[in-house]
Write a protein that binds this DNA or RNA. Sequence first.
DNA 1: GGTACCTGGAA
DNA 2: GTTCCAGGTAC
Length: 283
Amino acid sequence: METINTERNLRQTHLIGMVQMSQPVYSKQELIERLKEIRDKGWIQNRRKGNTGGIGNTLEDLLEIKENNLPIPNSAEWELKTHRKNNGSLTTLFHSEPSPRSLKIVPSILLPYYGWKHEKAGTKYPDSEMSFRQTINAVTRTDRGFCIVIDYDEEKILISFDPGKVSPKHKEWLTSVEERVGHIGELDIQPYWGFDDLFHTAGSKLLNCFYIDAEVKKEGDQEYYLYKDIYMLRKFSKQKFIKAIQNGIVLIDFDARTGHNHGTKFRIREDKIPILYEEVSMF
DNA sequence: GGTACCTGGAA
DNA sequence: GTTCCAGGTAC
């Protein structure tokens, strides 16, 4: 395993890499140094115009790494996450489709029976385009009546629907749901994630994490990033994770339209990622 | 080529 | 903070 730590060598390795060899490998301390160098460069132009993931992709370009493949030892145990400061948006932790998987419950049930007409149906998309987008937490129901329930006895978390909690603004939608489903009440089949499966997915992806909190500015239609706060987070905690769900800090995000199910995400409120870990370092 | 993942917003 | 939404890749 070779260690590369100069710009020139990185470039050479990258060129060689294009014809066959592996990426450069850093020690964790060297990766932190590289991240600090990038921070010290100041504002950096987005290199992936038109892609909303530009902030993360641009950082990956600067590190000369492939997506989701950190060039450090035990890279399978590490994740690189980039987040925009001050935009209030959620950070995606990982994706996981709910059980029972065989039912493909999102595209086969939630979207057709509980979805609504996509706002761009008839323009960008076909007239029949449906949408089911819900960001759901365990503390309050959404205005369409969905929430997360944690069942400690059965060791699973599940999605609940209460038509009595649907906001009046969605009255027409509720009526259409009743017509489509045939009756109204709790979901006949509640999507769920078993604790074991969930902890396995979360733990294997989030065990350790480099988390970069970046500032963003825009000049014209061009974005610039300042990769400012560098965190090293170690030892993902299942206990803290389930508690964060219970407290409404971690949410479940359904994200499907007819032509594209973006997948079901576990997401966390801004800047809260460190609370999921036993050890937090900042650089 | 379909499904489940990845990276994330804007209002 | 909530609601609704985006372009991509791995297999």
